[in-house]
Design a protein around this nucleic acid. Structure first.
Lengths: 149, 149
DNA sequence: TGCAAATAATTGTTATACTAACTATATTTG
DNA sequence: CAAATATAGTTAGTATAACAATTATTTGCA
């Protein structure tokens, strides 16, 4: 029976596709929930806001690192968040190349308003997955991630 | 011990992030491999080419459905592939709204040239994952995908 | 038959991503 | 200390992606 090898190759062929498809759908879904809630921010803007929420101000470099976005992308997302008055850029007194990016009060309020929407969306996304399945999924995805470093 | 519930919430919080991170890295990696091989196409253009490879000409609607891209995205990717003379759009004699999209000889050659690069990249991406792990991953991703329909 | 609804594709707008090139400032090192 | 190098951030160009609106054509049904 010569089907073992072809089957393996076939799996590798579709897995990348399934991965991308799911990630895309997830993004679409969260984006749709934000639109529905009239959140007036995108999911990527949300990711940046949430990164800032931990407390202290952060450089754009640090934001890029934590969100896995690149520097130009962070620049533009921050431009939009600044327009919406959700963040400010302050000059860093110790390094004049840098900004310290901070949430405004308005930005903190936005997070408070939107968090329930995000939590609800997460519930739906992971519905029916056991605890153990979740950690298996994360473990396998991390393995792939490490393979591509 | 009150850690069971928080741990669950925490997992749901990071899983979407891990999923997106891995999908993004995968895309970056394949894109980098194509660039390295001077393939002169992007990964999304590759996905469309590969969809066309099965043989018969296809409508843009069909390409969109199979690749999970939307119609405008397919239109623009095909514009680029047409510029590069890798595909042609022929009028469909039975339905004047449609095009039959076909690979050119040049397009078929491009696939032949690039396939080894893609196969090698797949090997690296899925390195160290058992057969069973692969199918588990696909099963779990599909479950999430279905949750978001 | 005739008209409303559905379908295929395009165009326009906004956002994200990658690359490259650029400015300004800091750091290293010879 | 000065020159080379590295780092932080921005700008520009191209590609992908979602959404909405538009055009042309076909289908469905009264």
């Amino acid at each position: 029976m010569p089907s073992a090898l072809p089957k393996l190759a076939k799996t590798a062929e579709v897995s990348g596709f399934i991965l991308e498809r799911t990630a895309k759908r997830m993004k679409q879904f969260f984006h749709a929930q934000l639109t529905l809630a009239a959140a007036d921010i995108t999911i990527d803007q949300w990711i940046v806001l949430q990164t800032l929420e931990s407390g202290s101000a952060q450089s754009q470099y640090e934001i890029a690192r934590q969100t896995f976005k690149d520097a130009p992308t962070v620049t533009r997302i921050l431009d939009l968040l600044e327009q919406k008055k959700l963040i400010t850029r302050e000059d860093d007194p110790n390094d004049r190349r840098r900004y310290n990016v901070r949430l405004t009060i308005h930005g903190r309020q936005k997070i408070k308003d939107i968090l329930p929407v995000i939590k609800q969306a997460r519930l739906q996304a992971w519905h029916g997955l056991e605890d153990e399945e979740m950690s298996t999924l994360v473990r396998l995805l991390d393995k792939v991630y490490d393979n591509l470093k």
